[in-house]
Design a protein around this nucleic acid. Structure first.
Lengths: 203, 203
DNA sequence: TGCATTATATACCGATGAGTATGAAATCCG
DNA sequence: CGGATTTCATACTCATCGGTATATAATGCA
């Protein structure tokens, strides 16, 4: 039995792997942002022509949404596992270190794709921003609930507001992305992680 | 005696105020970013035509640098005054609240222009990024020195590294900008400021 | 071997990007 | 008034943007 992805096709077979092409597109979007990535750059990196891109992925916006799916699947999986840490501090540490790893994965550090999209998208790209926001809203909610649980378990001081703490931690991670975009070294970002953890509230 | 700005001119007098036009351009750059702001939008907001813009401000890049000058002069003056606060915590508080005020000044919150430029500029705009980076390098250095003094004065724990603390505080402010770009309300950003201050190390 | 179908490659579309050439209008100096 | 000079308004250039029309090549099916 063939997988759904390899179902029998009737016409000329496609000469590229959509997964690979999408991964290449993701790299371009990540490096240049949604509006900063041109179709010429995208098709060049993907190794396909514009008609192939449109036939396979729709249009530029639809391609970006699919790339964002891939990004979450490949890069942001640490998010879910971070919530399994036994303590709130452990959650924060896993999130910070996971963010650090993602941002320093390539040749030169760069912000999370979500941060780039949120800050950089201006004009017509309002739906892009909305997509990013809705995606991060759910994980943000999960983080709030995790901190609420930690508070109930006596793992966080009673004075701490879970929502505020989640927002604060997100801000540090986003700021780390900004600094990565600004050319900060991995060592400097590590220092930022350590400083943040040093200030983490203890029960 | 006429000021240098109103020196006797020999040809047809200019029909707009360069300061006002630059201020209008700054608003556009702030809202759209350097690459996101088109000359059509700029000239429209400035109330002048393209040839007037080029005659008075050079080109788009030079206009941006001048707008950045104005931005620092008008908006970032709180930076210097923040360093005069008696304690390191007071410095942090003034910086955080000053950042908050700037980001929530307009109709809807938005990040600091520097953050936007740093994250969003991709292609040819490398010199824009370099300009922003060099500007913030000096103020960052001043912040480090202020924290070093605070440490020497026993105002900060001996375990704190001034450079790390400065980087951390910058990250929180930058993260605040990202959240502002993402549609956070002023109340939410205030909460972020309070949370950060609550975690500030005490001597 | 045709035929329907699907993907490819090339060339193209209108819109918009930054930047400019050109001629008219408004001032100062003589 | 008559240049000299500077600004203004319109129209333009060329490159690139996202997106597409068209024709050809490669497959499965009959």
């Amino acid at each position: 039995m063939k997988s759904a992805a390899e179902q029998v096709t009737r016409g000329r077979p496609r000469e590229f792997d959509p997964e690979e092409a999408l991964s290449a597109a993701l790299q371009v979007f990540w490096e240049k942002g949604y509006e900063g990535a041109s179709l010429a750059e995208l098709t060049d990196a993907m190794g396909i022509t514009k008609p192939s891109l449109y036939a396979c992925f729709g249009n530029k916006e639809s391609l970006f949404h699919k790339a964002l799916d891939l990004y979450e699947r490949d890069k942001l999986c640490y998010m879910r596992s971070a919530l399994d840490a036994p303590t709130a501090r452990g959650v924060a540490e896993r999130l910070l270190r996971g963010t650090l790893d993602i941002q320093t994965a390539g040749n030169d550090p760069r912000a999370c794709l979500g941060v780039i999209s949120m800050v950089a998208c201006t004009t017509q790209a309002e739906s892009i921003k909305a997509d990013v926001l809705s995606r991060q809203a759910s994980s943000h909610q999960a983080l709030i609930e995790r901190f609420a649980r930690a508070k109930a378990e006596g793992d966080l001081p009673a004075s701490v507001e879970p929502m505020a703490l989640a927002r604060y931690l997100s801000a540090v991670m986003q700021g780390m992305g900004v600094q990565a975009s600004g050319g900060a070294t991995r060592a400097q970002l590590e220092q930022l992680v350590e400083t943040t953890l040093a200030m983490w509230p203890s029960a």
